[in-house]
Simulated scan of single mutants.
Amino acid sequence: MTDTVSFGYEDIAASEKTARVGGVFTSVASKYDLMNDAMSGGMHRLWKDRFVRRVKPREDEQILDMAGGTGDIAFRLAASGAAVTVADINPAMLEVGMERAAKRGIDGLVWTEANAEVLTFPDRFFDAYTIAFGIRNVTDIPKALREAHRVLRRGGRFYCLEFSTTLWPGFGEIYDAYSHKIVPKVGKLLAQDEDSYRYLIESIRRFPDMEKFKGMIAEAGFVQTKVEPMLGGLVAIHSGWKI
């Protein structure tokens, strides 16, 4: 990893990013659903449903949902009877998730504070690893991908849902205008936090494109890597297998 990394459109020291991203998510944790609705026009709910269908969780499987603090993916996974561990580096996000689980009467989830780059779980422990809209906020993405590979059993599967760059002519320009000009203002209106929403939009633009990220997953040791674009690649499901 280089000495500097992106924080939105800003380049900062790698040592600073984790804390600064933490500040963003601490700020927006209580408004996370609103944030996702603002950034996706409400479509994130459909994307997450599709994502979990691709994961195909099964009863009694051990699944790690990384960066899943608010529980959106974990609740969907747990409906299959899978044993889900929800890990997030941000305690404020985990607190929101645990409160939501209690209100919904969802028991049995394991909640743990964890850094995707240095997981404390043993080797070959999980059947599946999921991460939704979280990988772009990691400081050292290749390191996090290697950790995902390490904690998966042989035959384990990796699934990542993340914003990317749409290839549809004209649509990218429309979404750029919407995201850069409107979403931060919505953040200011709904969460009194324009800067955090601006960072989240900028972080999408600095994230590797679909083919490059697919290559990074392969470099971490995964095979049969695939990418499934939605809305021309505005958001994509990446996957790979450990053998």
Rank of each mutant, 00 (worst) to 15 (best):
Trp111Val: 01
Ala78Asn: 10
Val84Tyr: 12
Asp123Met: 06
Arg50Lys: 15
Arg50Gly: 09
Gln62Leu: 11
Val96Tyr: 13
Arg54His: 13
Thr85Ala: 04
Leu46Gly: 07
Ala101Pro: 04
Thr112Phe: 14
Leu64Phe: 06
Asn90Gly: 04
Leu109Cys: 10
Leu119Cys: 06
Pro122Glu: 11
Ile73Thr: 12
Asp60Ala: 12
Ala114Asp: 02
Ala78Tyr: 10
Lys48Thr: 01
Gly41Phe: 14
Asp88Gly: 03
Gly81His: 08
Ser80Tyr: 08
Leu64Asp: 00
Glu99Ile: 11
Met98Thr: 11
Asp123Trp: 13
Thr85Gln: 04
Arg100Ser: 13
Met39Ile: 14
Ile89Arg: 10
Gly97Phe: 09
Leu34Pro: 07
Gly71Lys: 12
Ile106Arg: 12
Asp49Val: 01
Asp65Phe: 07
Leu64Pro: 00
Ile89Ala: 14
Leu46Pro: 01
Asp107Val: 15
Ala67Asp: 00
Met93Leu: 10
Leu34His: 15
Asp88Leu: 04
Pro91Val: 03
Lys103His: 14
Gly81Lys: 08
Gly105His: 13
Gly81Asn: 07
Leu64Asn: 01
Leu119Ile: 12
Arg58Gln: 10
Val110His: 10
Ile73Tyr: 10
Ala38Ile: 06
Arg50Ile: 15
Gly42Thr: 07
Asp123Lys: 11
Gly108Val: 05
Thr120Tyr: 08
Ile73Trp: 09
Asp65Ile: 01
Phe75Ser: 03
Val55Glu: 00
Glu113Ser: 03
Gln62Tyr: 13
Gly68Ala: 09
Leu46Lys: 12
Asn90Gln: 08
Met93Glu: 05
Lys48Arg: 10
Arg104Ile: 08
Asp88Pro: 05
Gly71Leu: 08
Ala83Thr: 11
Trp111Thr: 02
Arg100Glu: 10
His44Asn: 09
Asp123Leu: 08
Arg104Pro: 10
Asp127Ala: 04
Ile106Leu: 15
Gly42Asn: 09
Asn115Asp: 15
Ala67Arg: 01
Val118Lys: 13
Met98Val: 12
Trp47Gln: 01
Gly42Gln: 04
Met66Gln: 03
Leu34Thr: 14
Thr120Lys: 09
Ala101Gly: 05
Phe126Ser: 02
His44Ala: 05
Thr120Trp: 07
Val52Gly: 00
Leu94Phe: 06
Asp65Ser: 00
Arg58Tyr: 07
Gly97Asp: 02
Arg100Phe: 14
Pro91Trp: 10
Asp107Lys: 15
Ala102Arg: 15
Asp127Gln: 05
Pro91Ile: 04
Val86Arg: 01
Thr70Glu: 06
Met93Pro: 05
Asp72Met: 04
Arg53Tyr: 09
Ile63Asp: 00
Ala116Ile: 11
Val86Met: 02
Phe126Asn: 03
Met43Ile: 15
Val55Arg: 00
